[in-house]
């Protein structure tokens, strides 16, 4: 080798290769670290999403007992997919409240008629203001809120049957 400098590009590339290979081998960590865990929920009061039922206010989530808060919408297809899992959580005795985002009462009523109603209270968040202040950026999302209004767990996306255990555990931990 007359000019060792010519090896430099190869060395730089090898470094890239090792880093990228390590990164691939380590597996992709898709967990989005929640920034709201440990934060208190904002103060809000939402009117009922379905006529004749009760809406949700922040005070309802500070009764001393933990609750789940599900953010959904009738127009959101994945929300229908997670409905059986919410029913299952409800059957296990976990109280769930919900916020319907950018929705209409008649659509929410139809959604509940189609998929069942695991919710004790459903508030209507017409302009997504409450959703955003909760730190939620999409539907569906589910929060575990302890009895003092502190967010203990945030589940982003659909609750698949495998996720039920994780939510039950988070609920138990919040007690």
């Amino acid at each position: 080798m007359k000019r060792p400098i010519l090896l430099l590009p190869l060395a730089v590339f090898a470094l890239f290769l090792v880093t990228a290979g390590w990164r691939l081998a380590a597996g992709r960590d898709d967990t989005i670290r929640s920034r709201v865990i440990g934060q208190p929920i904002p103060a809000f009061a939402l009117g009922p999403a379905v006529p004749g039922r009760i809406g949700v206010a922040s005070g309802d989530l500070m009764t001393g007992k933990p609750r789940l808060l599900n953010v959904f919408a009738s127009w959101c297809v994945p929300c229908g997919v997670e409905a059986p899992q919410l029913m299952e959580l409800n059957r296990r005795g976990i109280p769930i409240d919900a916020i319907a985002v950018r929705d209409r009462p008649e659509d929410v009523a139809r959604f509940l008629a189609d998929y069942g109603n695991p919710f004790q209270r459903i508030g209507l968040d017409r302009d997504t203001r409450v959703q955003i202040s909760l730190g939620s950026s999409g539907v569906p999302e589910t929060f575990v809120i302890d009895g003092h209004g502190i967010i203990r767990h945030q589940h982003i996306g659909v609750i698949s049957p495998e996720d039920v255990g994780e939510l039950v555990a988070a609920y138990e931990a919040a007690r």
Partner: peptide
């Protein structure tokens, strides 16, 4: 790794 590594190795050997 094969292509870029191969080409850069060839480069290191021959460019001199």
């Amino acid at each position: 790794g094969l292509y870029i590594g191969g080409a850069l190795t060839l480069f290191a050997l021959r460019a001199g």
